[in-house]
């Protein structure tokens, strides 16, 4: 490998003296221009488990969006003659303790879980990345105050902090976003900050400074893109944890309010009948598992696709 490189280095022509800058007309082909997006997409396609993850996420998303049109049962209609029925032809996933069709409730619950998983994880990752990069790059007082704020957030048990926020703001979906974002940004900011501190000393950042590139441009062009794999991983990890936290909040009564069929709520309601009617808790639990796994596969594939060293 090394010998090959040396040979090719030797073959390169040395510049003829007297040849100024811009000596020849150079054709620049259209397909020379490639975007980061195109590269990532191509690498992503080659990764089978990432594709499976993507398909599962897409499938669940489509199912959740089309729920009212494809389901024969309503998720809210109770039928007390029909409580805790095991899976059957009429009710594929069985029924819950009020005789509601569990399949309808799980599919409707996917809407909430997807939204709960994506939006707060996205918000927390964005806030955490920006604060983390600012903290690491500017240092000094900025760093001190952002990190102390993060310490405060991290010092609380996250569920407790989310509960306090939910109690203060009131239990509804929008407030769950706010609560989970406030809880989630701190760990992201720590990770991005430490990465920034390492990148800031790299010579390519110094080269950019020597060129007179503005600080903000350095952050967006040199620092953040190099943090992207880590941010991606943190993001995919925070989707399942947001889903779980929502489940915890719902269980404690400050998250989704019954009769909203959130998966967390379904699991915690079903756990009372775990021995007599185990499907009521297990099926939504398996749904959480599948969605969380699918997101993780996707995240892994995305991370590899973004990493330039993994290519070819």
């Amino acid at each position: 490998m090394h010998d090959d490189e040396r040979v090719s280095d030797n073959k390169m022509k040395t510049p003829d003296s007297g040849q100024g800058i811009a000596p020849e007309k150079i054709e620049v082909k259209k397909d020379d221009v490639e975007t980061l997006f195109g590269d990532v997409f191509r690498a992503f396609q080659k990764n089978r488990s990432a594709l499976v993850g993507l398909c599962v996420v897409l499938f669940i998303t489509v199912l959740a969006l089309s729920a009212p049109y494809v389901l024969s049962h309503d998720p809210y209609t109770m039928n007390l003659d029909n409580r805790n029925q095991p899976p059957s032809e009429a009710h594929w996933f069985g029924t819950d303790t009020y005789g509601r069709d569990l399949m309808a409730r799980v599919i409707f619950g996917a809407r909430i879980s997807l939204v709960i998983g994506l939006i707060p994880a996205f918000l927390a990752t964005c806030i955490g990345s920006i604060l983390g990069v600012a903290s690491g790059f500017y240092g000094g007082k900025t760093d001190f105050w952002i990190m102390r704020l993060a310490d405060v957030v991290l010092a609380f048990p996250s569920l407790l902090l989310a509960m306090v926020i939910m109690y203060t703001l009131g239990a509804n979906l929008f407030n769950i976003f706010i609560a989970l974002s406030i809880v989630g940004w701190a760990s992201t900011s720590r990770i991005v900050r430490s990465q920034t501190l390492a990148l800031k000393e790299k010579e390519f950042v110094e080269a950019a400074r020597a060129l007179g590139v503005k600080k903000r441009t350095i952050i967006f062009r040199h620092i953040l893109p190099n943090c992207l794999p880590n941010i991606m991983v943190v993001f995919t990890m925070s989707i399942p944890s947001a889903i779980m936290q929502e489940a915890g909040l719902s269980f404690l009564g400050v998250g989704a309010q019954p009769p909203t069929p959130s998966w967390g709520l379904l699991v915690s309601q079903g756990k009372e009948f775990i021995f007599s009617a185990p499907w009521v808790a297990i099926i939504p639990g398996v749904a959480i598992l599948i969605l969380v796994l699918a997101f993780n596969f996707m995240g892994d594939g995305l991370r590899d696709a973004i990493d330039p060293y993994m290519k070819d």
């Binding site: 980061l36 010579e203 390519f204 110094e206 020597a210 062009r221 992207l228």
Partner: peptide, 17 residues
């Protein structure tokens, strides 16, 4: 005024063409 660095592995941003 410009600079050429020691380590050619660290002086080019790995994410840029």
């Amino acid at each position: 005024m410009q600079i050429i660095f020691q380590d050619p592995y660290a002086s080019l941003n790995p994410r840029m063409r």
